[in-house]
Amino acid sequence: MTSGPVGVASPESRVDGAARLPKKPGPTPFTIVTTLGAVVMTVVTARAVGFSFEGLIENLTRPNSVVEGLLNPDFSQIWSERSRAAFIETLQLAVLGTVAGASVALPLALWSTRVGNPNTFLRSIVRIFNNIVRAIPDLLWALIFVSAVGIGALSGLLALFFFSLAVTTKLTSDVLDGIDPGPVEAANASGAGLTQMLRTAVVPQILPSYSSFVLYNFELNLRSSAVIGLVGAGGIGERIEFFRSRGEWEEMWGLVVMFFLVVMIIEAFSVTLRRRLV
């Protein structure tokens, strides 16, 4: 995987006796083990998912109504009252989820680093919490909240809150590793408290990256807010699920295509803004 070219015979021809190539280094044990691991993993997982090329080709070439629907999307649905309301709800969910998640993510990220949290024990608690939140994907959060709080936008918001928390915390704590320690030393030497030091010496350094992550997170949330509706957590996903359950593929794809066009346009704005920030 990481080795150099394999299987090239070392050249026997030499101009003179002096020009002898050093012995070509073989692949390292690490490379051998990981390559072997990858091959074994592939064989085992292929069996687990029932992978076969024949099945793949056969299924993909068989005509089916869903793909036909994708080729003839019906956009008329978009203008219905319900679809429009669902679409706006999706945007609102994404905005609020991002803002709520991002505001909690900043302190959580700070407290997960040595500089922001000198107490080793508390730091590990924060890190464990962050890791657990990060291991649960958006739709699972939605499932959890739909069963705990009930069907509706509030569950969606809570799900997006935790999802945003995970994403922004992770990205922010990664840039925190690379900050300039000088201002931190200066703040400490002036008798500043921990919170004051973080606010004046650390936050200004990461603010551009952090803002950029928040925007990136917003882009992710736009997409997630379409997904969480599939389990009843509000937003456009509920409409998608509605058409899907009725087998109205043309309408479903019309909605999906439209929604992701809008997402891509918003993303383009967001990316321009992010570039300005960094």
Partner: peptide, 15 residues
């Protein structure tokens, strides 16, 4: 731009 789960909606009827 499209989440996996939406793509999956297209593949489920196929597979």
């Amino acid at each position: 731009a499209i989440p996996e789960i939406i793509i999956a909606l297209a593949f489920i009827p196929v597979f």
